[in-house]
């Protein structure tokens, strides 16, 4: 009896192990593995990109490439790469998070932001509002979010990259409206965040709060995430409202030079990021509701992407400056949120 149990255990263990090794040996021959560490809302985008790129790479070089994905909050993902997650490329929500990776262990060479065109962000997005069908609270612009009877859902800018874009877009609107009067801007932001009912830790969690749990009148969201919610959860339940002014969200990409060098994947990693800028890559981005950089393809999808007056991060200096001023301890967010 006992002997049999031991044999069964040994057998199943060897089966498990052989299962692993067989998939490995299949890989070693010609397949190169690439790990793309990305942020939350890009899951669907990179699923499509990876299939298309693998096909193209195979045609060009005859080599099989298997791209593995890891998704999570942008800041958390950057942290994991610093702590040793062996990413070949990072595709995060904002430049600040890649800067952090670059600062540690010489993972990414300096000047990564100029390595690729358009500040190394091949696609962009912007911040819009998702409201319930029929827009019962008649929300049209940022002004409407500070009304006392409106409940707002947005993630926490301390932990979420997307939330920082939301915050800066609102700030930019207030700055224009109050002609840069800091006191009035802070007052506006205080009212806005006073209306926030749930402050989730990440963009996807906020979407789930708004859609699945049915909390809030308006979700401040990435444009791509808002479109995805419509697709996944029904056009009958929600609609998108575009504010008069927003911010150009530029999610950047970079090769993690140290890891790629160590694994010998530099070439394919660079080709992978280059692919994002090709016509095909840009088209896939547009199909996944990211605004393509390529003007022609943007034109093809112009119905989907209404023209908005957009600020950029350069209007706030750069990410280091914005981070220090608004999101680090004692920044404006602490000021407007804790004194509620």
């Amino acid at each position: 009896m006992k002997k049999r149990a031991v044999t069964v255990a040994a057998l199943s263990l060897s089966l498990l192990l052989s299962g692993c090794s067989s998939s490995d040996s299949k890989g070693n021959a010609e397949t190169v593995n690439l790990l793309n560490v990305s942020y939350d809302p890009t899951r669907e985008l990179y699923e499509d990109i990876n299939t298309a790129f693998a096909k193209e790479w195979k045609q060009e070089t005859g080599q099989n490439v298997k791209i593995q994905q890891s998704h999570g909050g942008s800041g958390k993902q950057g942290r994991a790469v610093i702590d040793g997650l062996p990413a070949d490329v990072v595709t995060l929500a904002l430049a600040y998070d890649i800067d952090e990776v670059a600062k540690n262990r010489h993972l990414i060479d300096k000047g990564w932001a100029d390595e690729y065109a358009d500040h190394s962000s091949p696609y962009t997005s912007t911040i819009v509002f998702l409201v319930r069908k029929g827009n019962p609270k008649n929300i049209q612009d940022w002004d409407d979010l500070v009304k006392s009877d409106v409940s707002v859902i947005t993630p926490n800018p301390k932990t979420s990259g997307g939330a920082r874009w939301n915050y800066l877009a609102a700030w930019g609107y207030a700055a224009k409206k109050y002609d840069n009067d800091k006191l009035k801007i802070e007052n506006f932001m205080k009212q806005l965040y006073g209306n926030v009912q749930v402050l989730d830790s990440g963009a996807r969690a906020s979407t789930t709060t708004f859609t699945e749990r049915g909390i809030g009148d308006v979700l401040i969201s990435w444009e791509n995430e808002a479109y995805l919610s419509l697709d996944e959860l029904g056009h009958d339940n929600y609609e998108i409202v575009t504010p008069s002014m927003s911010i150009l969200a530029e999610p950047p990409v970079a090769v993690v030079d140290k890891n790629a060098k160590h694994k010998g994947t530099e070439k394919v990693a660079e080709a992978y990021l280059d692919f994002l800028y090709t016509k095909e890559g840009q088209k896939i981005a547009a199909e996944n509701y990211y605004r393509p950089r390529d003007k022609e393809i943007l034109k093809d999808y112009q119905k989907q992407f209404p023209k908005i007056d957009m600020l950029t991060i350069r209007d706030f200096g750069d990410w280091n400056k914005a981070q220090a001023e608004h999101f680090s301890d004692g920044g404006t967010f602490d000021k407007i949120y804790t004194t509620n």
């Binding site: 790990l35 593995q68 994905q69 890891s70 998704h71 999570g72 994991a80 997650l85």
Partner: peptide, 8 residues
């Protein structure tokens, strides 16, 4: 400690 690499 996982790193959330899918399939891995």
């Amino acid at each position: 400690v996982s790193g959330h690499v899918r399939g891995l």
